[in-house]
Amino acid sequence: MTSPRFTAPGAVPATPMLEMRGVRKVYRAGLVETEALSGATLTVNSGEFLAIMGPSGSGKTTFLSVAGLLDSFEEGQYLLDGEDVRRLPDRRLSRLRNQKIGFIFQSFNLIPDLDVFDNVDVPLRYRGLPAGERDARIEQTLSKLGLVARMRHLPGQLSGGQQQRVAIARALVGRPQLLLADEPTGNLDSTSARQIMDLLARINEDEGMTIVMVTHDHEFAARAHRKLHILDGKLIDPRAAPALVSG
């Protein structure tokens, strides 16, 4: 499926950040094959904020795993910022993950025995930046997210909302071009969830960062520029096929 070209506010000519054509992902368990993605086709332009919705088991997380280069796929083509990632070696995939993609996980996925500063430091360590620059970037990012005072706290000493902000700081500190968020508000109370959504919207608007967010929540999905549904591994544009996604 294709999408209309997205043009971010400011009328900068749109360039595709993520292009998938006919991507198919199959999980095998013994003789049982489960098709988690069935010929996924879409284009996400730079600066776009895309929400993907779907019921449990529909393939949302698989889509994010493939899009985030966390998992391979069997068929199709995937261009990330113009680079075909299908047969790239692990080292190159790791570098792309590290430099171009930021992840926000539903369960935060912070390292429990590293403090806030060191958690945010992880992606920069694999970037090869000098210590001074790393420190400056971390402090700047934590400051932007209001976490400077918590810099030396362990994740267990923070609230859920604060932990998710740390996870966002970790995703942003490397200044990626693409932010993938897997149910970022799923484990938060409504106030914290709203704050996190405000934050993501601001990041998208202020920095023009491309965001692909998987969510169950219609209210939060409505804040994205575009919304896609996923059903049985198939991506569906609700504007093109409203009957398929209604209810």
Binding site: S94, F103, I111
Partner: peptide
């Protein structure tokens, strides 16, 4: 394994 998976997701190559 989860922690190592997170490191991999954040850009740590297998070798490291």
């Amino acid at each position: 394994r989860d922690e190592l998976g997170i490191f991999r997701a954040l850009g740590a190559p297998r070798g490291s």
